[in-house]
C-alpha cells in the first residue's frame, strides 16, 4: 500500500519535471486571440502564445481553414507587426487579405522557389521581431525543420501559422497547438441552386443566400489542455465573424 502511494507520488513528480522540460520558453506577453472566442476557450491561455507554432489541418481544400488562420494573424498583427506570407505556390491573392482587414502596408509577401529556400525563408521570418505573424503552406516539413521553426518563432516572438492538409495529422510536430478544421452540415439541408441565385448585388447576399460556413474545429494537440475537445462555429464569409454553435467533448482522435 505504502509502496503504491510512493510510486504515485514519484510518478507525479516525474510528470511535473517532464512537463517543465517540455514547456517552451514562455513570453510575458498576453496571448494572441484566435479571432474566434470559442476557439480561445479551448486553449489554456485563452489564445495562442506569441513565439509559437500553430498548425491548422484542413480536412479538405477550400473549407475555410486559411481564413480562420488569417483571423488569428490579424489579431497577432494588431500591434503593428507585419504579416509575412510565404507564397511558394505563387497563388496568393492579396485582395482577399486586405478585404479581411489587414492593410497592404502590413503585408510582406515572400515567394521562394525551391524547398531549401522556402524553409530558410520561413526560419528567417519567424526569427524576426518585426513580424507579427507568418502564414506558411509547407509542402513537406520534416521534424528537424519544424523544430528549427519552433525555436525561431520562440526567439522572434512570432506567431507561426502553418496550413497543412489533414494527411499531416499522423506526422510528428513541434507546434504548440494543432487544430483540425472540418466542414459540417448546416442543419438546413442542401439548398437548391435556383433558390440562391443572386444576380443584382453579387457580394451582398440576403439571409437566404448568406455565405456562411459551418465548421468543426477540433483541438488535436495543445500543451496544457485536453486534446479531443472541439467546437462548432459559423463563419460568415461576408463579415469574417465567427459565432459558436455548440461545444462538446469528442473522443480523443489522435
Amino acid at each position: 500500500m505504502r509502496e503504491g502511494v510512493e510510486r504515485v507520488i514519484c510518478l507525479e513528480e516525474l510528470r511535473e519535471r517532464v512537463a517543465q522540460l517540455e514547456a517552451p520558453r514562455r513570453c510575458q506577453d498576453s496571448p494572441v486571440g484566435s479571432g474566434c472566442e470559442a476557439v480561445d476557450k479551448l486553449l489554456p491561455d485563452g489564445g495562442f502564445r506569441r513565439g509559437s507554432l500553430v498548425e491548422w489541418l484542413a480536412a479538405d481544400e477550400g473549407i475555410g481553414a486559411s481564413t480562420l488562420a488569417l483571423l488569428a494573424a490579424r489579431e497577432a498583427c494588431q500591434d503593428g507587426g507585419m504579416l509575412a506570407v510565404l507564397d511558394a505556390r505563387g497563388e496568393f491573392c492579396p485582395t482577399a487579405v486586405v478585404r479581411l482587414g489587414i492593410g497592404t502596408e502590413q503585408l510582406l509577401v515572400i515567394r521562394p522557389q525551391g524547398t531549401a529556400d522556402h524553409d530558410w525563408a520561413v526560419d528567417q521570418v519567424l526569427h524576426s521581431p518585426a513580424i507579427g505573424a507568418a502564414l506558411v503552406w509547407p509542402r513537406k516539413a520534416d521534424v528537424r525543420t519544424l523544430r528549427r521553426w519552433q525555436l525561431a518563432a520562440e526567439a522572434g516572438g512570432t506567431l507561426g501559422l502553418l496550413l497543412r492538409p489533414e494527411a499531416a495529422r499522423s506526422e510528428p510536430s513541434w507546434a504548440d497547438v494543432r487544430l483540425l478544421v472540418e466542414c459540417v452540415a448546416d442543419g438546413q439541408g442542401e439548398l437548391p441552386i435556383a433558390e440562391t441565385s443572386l444576380a443584382s448585388n453579387p457580394w451582398h447576399t440576403d439571409i437566404a443566400g448568406r455565405e456562411r460556413r459551418f465548421l468543426r474545429i477540433t483541438l488535436l494537440r495543445c500543451r496544457g489542455a485536453t486534446a479531443g475537445r472541439c467546437v462548432e462555429v459559423e463563419l460568415d464569409d461576408e463579415t469574417y465573424r465567427v459565432h459558436p454553435l455548440e461545444q462538446r467533448r469528442l473522443p480523443i482522435a489522435n
Binding site: 482577399a96 486586405v98 457580394w203
Partner: peptide, 8 residues
C-alpha cells in the same frame, strides 16, 4: 473590395 479567394 469584392470577395476574392485567398488562392487565385
Amino acid at each position: 473590395l469584392p470577395p476574392r479567394p485567398l488562392r487565385l
